[in-house]
């Protein structure tokens, strides 16, 4: 896997497949990027599970907070890591000990650990590093085009509404053959 440059189909197939996302390192503060991404993905229909050992007392956006990934009593499809790079390895190691194993490890913008990535890839997980799932969802659904961002996508097909509000768009179908 080339971690400097992901194909749109790779990202789209991940965001189209996963349903439950555990976000490690989420902040309960409304002005933090992790809170933004959590809320946005929750609004797009993902089951979002907050993980932060310091924040278990109160739910975040009505979702119960767990101290660790191992405490989550249900299967998780994707682990989204909102911690700086030096904290990534133990989180990936813990993810790999979960049963069933998650299918995807996602590291946020500016977060990257190639050693941890290859550990996960060796056992068949997909890995994304240094990207934000909110931005990628917005880019591939064309929502981000509303704020003038270069989505780097062209299409003669119209973007489909998600069906849960006027300004919420769906990702469209992934092209299976390219979704390596």
């Amino acid at each position: 896997m080339n971690h400097d440059n992901y194909s749109d189909n790779y990202i789209r197939s991940i965001l189209n497949t996963v349903k439950t996302i555990a976000m490690v390192g989420i902040s309960p503060k409304e002005n933090r990027p992790s809170y933004f991404a959590f809320k946005y993905l929750l609004d797009r229909g993902y089951r979002m599970i907050p993980v932060n050992p310091g924040q278990t007392a109160k739910p975040i956006l009505k979702q119960k907070v767990y101290a660790t990934l191992s405490d989550i009593p249900e299967p998780v499809d994707m682990v989204d890591i909102f911690r700086s790079s030096e904290h990534v390895l133990p989180i990936v190691e813990e993810s790999l000990r979960l049963t069933p194993r998650p299918q995807v490890i996602w590291m946020q913008l500016t977060v990257r650990d190639d050693e941890a990535a290859s550990l996960a890839e060796k056992v068949g997980l997909k890995v994304v590093m240094n990207r934000c799932p909110k931005i990628e969802y917005g880019r591939l659904s064309s929502e981000i085009s509303w704020i003038g961002v270069n989505s780097r996508t062209l299409s003669s097909k119209r973007a489909q509404n998600l069906g849960t509000g006027l300004q919420r768009m769906s990702l469209g179908k992934s092209d299976k053959k390219d979704a390596r």
């Binding site: 609004d43 981000i144 509303w146 300004q167």
Partner: peptide
């Protein structure tokens, strides 16, 4: 600023957004 979308044309407008992109 937690989601992408349109509010008021002084801040953004879908026709202008196509031009921006």
């Amino acid at each position: 600023l937690q989601t992408f979308g349109n509010i008021y044309t002084r801040i953004g407008n879908p026709t202008c957004a196509v031009l921006e992109e």
